[in-house]
Design a binder for these strands. Sequence first.
DNA 1: TTGTAATGATACCATATAAGTATCATTTGT
DNA 2: ACAAATGATACTTATATGGTATCATTACAA
Lengths: 133, 133
Amino acid sequence: MNLLTRNTDYAVRALIYMSGKHPERVSTADLDRDLHLPRPFMRKILQILQKAGYLASVKGKNGGFTLAKVPSRIHLTELIALFQGPVSMGDCLFRKKLCDCADGCPLRRVIKGIEAMALARLKSVTLASLTGA
Amino acid sequence: MNLLTRNTDYAVRALIYMSGKHPERVSTADLDRDLHLPRPFMRKILQILQKAGYLASVKGKNGGFTLAKVPSRIHLTELIALFQGPVSMGDCLFRKKLCDCADGCPLRRVIKGIEAMALARLKSVTLASLTGA
DNA sequence: TTGTAATGATACCATATAAGTATCATTTGT
DNA sequence: ACAAATGATACTTATATGGTATCATTACAA
């Protein structure tokens, strides 16, 4: 069970890299060279980040991406939501009709509690906190 | 992202059911009738629980399963481990060679921290605590 | 002693999601 | 005009989860 999937992971790495280079432009070629991540996959991820407003892009020769937000305002939870959907660890384990999970299921309560803890912790993580800046 | 998979979930439900019936014998047919879970899947799960020592089984006509451990000594973490492997939320996100995730990767630290919290919480959950007994 | 209802063991299949690739169009600097 | 970049999007592959099927074995009971 992994809290982050690859694309979220790669996204974070790319953003860290870019925050280091800022305001210099970074292309997928650069990332490929320095981070050695699967290039077309990375490309897709960057496009998603761009659409979501985390990156600004410049097309054409010498084009590339730059951070479009300050690192302190890029939250890990947002990135997770973007690539994996909202953080949710227990989408009704006990399925409807089979139990009244609606209200009192104790297992569900435990899971929800853990989820809340995880979420609280994740919310405090920003790109800035990851780079130590 | 789900903290528990179906088989863990079903296992918990079956165990709760059985702790309610104890020391009466429970067959997959009973579970099918009362819990309406996919029967052959449930069978497989029960066999795993039996092998792992949580259930005692009796073959032949009128056979079935009974709890082989006291509910207070059946920990949720064990069941998770049995069906999903050990709880681990961040099996090296930053893959080797690409970063020195070995020691100082901050993202990894965060994940590991969350994992530790979740684990601590999960460890306190037993079958007994779930049934309220 | 034979039929039936149960588990033991295990191989197989289906489906969804994650991970990754490929392609064509568009833009832009030289 | 060409090359190097992104935009958009469709496609493929790998893996894990969820679920089935089958044959062997055991035991009760008519």
